[in-house]
Simulated scan of single mutants.
Amino acid sequence: MLSTIKIVLVETTHPGNIGAVARAMKNMKMHNLWLVAPKIFPSADATSRASGADDVLAGATVCRTLQEAIADCQLVIGASARGRTISWPELTPRECAEKILINEPGNGRDGSQQSCGIHTIPGDKVAIVFGRENSGLKNHELDLCHFLLRIPCNSEYSSLNIAAAVQIVCYELFVTSGLAAQEEIFVGDKGEEPLATAAQMESFYTHLAEALTDIGFMHPAKSKSIMRRLRRIYNRIQLDTKELDILRGILRMSQGHKRNTDV
């Protein structure tokens, strides 16, 4: 799905930025990198900044002109932070991802299009074009684009590093494509223990009320209000059975300590 989307860099000055872009792309399962007249490439700097995304660099296509890079594309989107005298239809990164990856009814090749304009169909090739580090895309290059992609950010400091800009756009494409849901990573023991049942939670709440009363924290007149708030806290957390066992062990130890000090 993402393989038909080209990330196109125009006249990149610093080879390290090319490597950083390759890394950003691979993070989001994208590999189709095109370089228009880069100042220095290949380069050890690019390889170093790629941090393992050497395959993206090795597969990069280098060409002389932007026209050559986008010649086979049905949709071309140019990224720019600068305002323009003549306005282009604008997209945010999320809108860009939706336009590329979500096919809306009534936007097919039969000529019927809704007011939202061009959408792709499976198999269409798309180019997302990023300009020079210091000056971005020139107007004649934007003339080749269907849309202008603008990343919302601080209006007083809107200049993004090119790799950061590519990362944001690729992230939105990754999430919209559905691949992010397939890449869920469990950290530590997350998900290993089943969640506590309603019956187990009720037994815990009974034990909790007893322990809080035993240690003098809770008084009968205030018990309903306190327990209601404690229920809200633990219900938000969604305890698993192991966590519940740990908490009940703490309650038993607290009760035992209180009895020993009372003797």
Rank of each mutant, 00 (worst) to 15 (best):
K138S: 12
K138H: 14
N139L: 11
D143K: 11
D143N: 12
L144K: 05
L144T: 01
C145Y: 03
F147E: 01
F147V: 00
L148K: 10
L148H: 09
L148Y: 08
L149P: 02
L149N: 04
R150Q: 11
P152K: 06
S155W: 10
E156T: 12
L160W: 07
L160C: 08
I162V: 15
I162P: 01
A163D: 02
A163L: 07
A163P: 03
V166N: 03
V166R: 06
V166Y: 05
Q167D: 00
Y171T: 03
Y171F: 10
E172Q: 06
V175E: 07
V175Q: 05
V175I: 09
T176R: 01
T176F: 04
S177A: 07
G178T: 07
L179V: 04
L179A: 09
A180K: 03
A180P: 05
A180Y: 00
Q182V: 09
E183D: 14
E184V: 12
I185N: 11
I185Y: 11
F186T: 14
G188I: 08
G188D: 10
G188A: 13
D189I: 15
K190T: 15
G191Y: 07
G191F: 07
E192D: 15
E192L: 15
E193M: 15
E193L: 14
E193C: 15
P194G: 03
P194I: 01
L195R: 15
T197Y: 08
A198W: 13
A198M: 14
Q200S: 05
M201N: 08
S203L: 14
Y205S: 05
Y205C: 05
H207W: 06
H207T: 07
A209K: 06
T213E: 10
D214K: 09
I215M: 07
I215E: 05
P220G: 09
A221C: 11
K222T: 09
S223M: 11
S223W: 04
K224F: 08
K224T: 10
S225C: 12
S225L: 14
S225T: 14
I226Y: 04
I226E: 07
M227R: 00
M227C: 07
M227L: 13
R228S: 13
R228M: 12
R228G: 09
R229E: 11
R229M: 09
L230M: 10
L230Q: 00
R232W: 07
I233R: 06
I233L: 11
Y234T: 05
Y234N: 03
